[in-house]
């Protein structure tokens, strides 16, 4: 294993171990989206009676929301952990070792990706057990997992950037509502063409989160939709790229070792 891969593995392992040892940190993000899935898929079932609604199962329609919510929680966890490292001086301890900046970032994201992967598998399994049929088949399910992991990676990296910028867990926590707002003003509850309030539909249309949700949703309820998939994967990869760039720049500022 190359030096950098070894360092990434070490940092990711530490990140996963510390998360696993705090049940209060990982249980709510794992269960909360499931509770919301159960409640909203029934509470909003009446929406399937709207003319033009694409499926008669609101659960199938709503499943992608859980992946997105899980990714946001993973982002908050990754960010809070790194912010605590900045705050306590642990980042300085790491900076005094030969660890490379890239390894530190990718390793920390690795923790978020690990948690995101576990969450995605659980959400998908619960959805399948609850009777959701994935129209795109097994390949579609794999692609959903892949996109969910990419989204968790993107938001996880964004969380790192926020942590490096603010340097405090409180700072990360107070930014979390803003990220959550992106989810709320997306097409999470209704397809965009059924949103009748113009300003909201416009916001949902320019919101990249809508496209990530719609890519996953297309695989569940309508099969292989190339345009939706390209947009969803494109925005997820763009989020990863931009977040990594921002985080790497901020890490240089925060870890200004010579």
């Amino acid at each position: 294993m190359s030096v950098i891969a070894h360092q990434v593995a070490l940092i990711a392992q530490r990140s996963l171990v510390r998360t696993a040892r705090q049940p209060g940190v990982w249980i709510p993000p794992l269960t909360f989206p499931l509770i919301l899935m159960a409640v909203n898929s029934n509470g909003l079932k009446a929406a399937t009676h709207l003319p033009g609604f694409p499926t008669n199962s609101f659960l199938a329609f709503f499943v992608p929301f859980s992946f997105m919510q899980g990714a946001l929680f993973a982002s908050a966890i990754a960010g809070t952990d790194l912010a605590r490292d900045v705050d306590t001086g642990f980042l300085n301890r790491l900076a005094l070792t030969p660890v490379r900046g890239a390894a530190l970032l990718i390793g920390q994201v690795g923790g978020a990706v690990g948690l995101g992967t576990i969450q995605a598998v659980v959400y998908l399994a619960v959805a399948l057990l609850a009777g959701v049929h994935i129209v795109a088949g097994i390949g579609g399910a794999v692609l959903i997992l892949l996109l969910a992991i990419l989204v968790a990676t993107g938001f996880g990296t964004l969380g790192l950037w926020i942590a490096l910028r603010t340097g405090s867990g409180e700072g990360v926590q107070s930014t979390f509502p803003l990220l959550f707002f992106l989810l709320l003003i997306s097409s999470m509850n209704l397809p965009r063409n059924l949103i009748e309030v113009n300003w909201f539909r416009d916001l949902a249309t320019i919101n990249p989160v809508s496209y990530m949700i719609e890519a996953m949703r297309s695989l569940v309820i309508s099969g292989w939709d190339t345009q939706a998939l390209v947009l969803g994967f494109g925005f997820a990869l763009a989020l990863i790229g931009i977040s990594l760039l921002l985080s790497a720049r901020q890490l240089k500022v925060r870890m200004s070792r010579t």
């Binding site: 530490r14 171990v17 510390r18 040892r21 705090q22 490292d85 306590t88 001086g89 642990f90 980042l91 300085n92 301890r93």
Partner: peptide
């Protein structure tokens, strides 16, 4: 600051 990870 004794910069240690409380969970390790």
């Amino acid at each position: 600051e004794a910069a240690l990870d409380p969970f390790l």
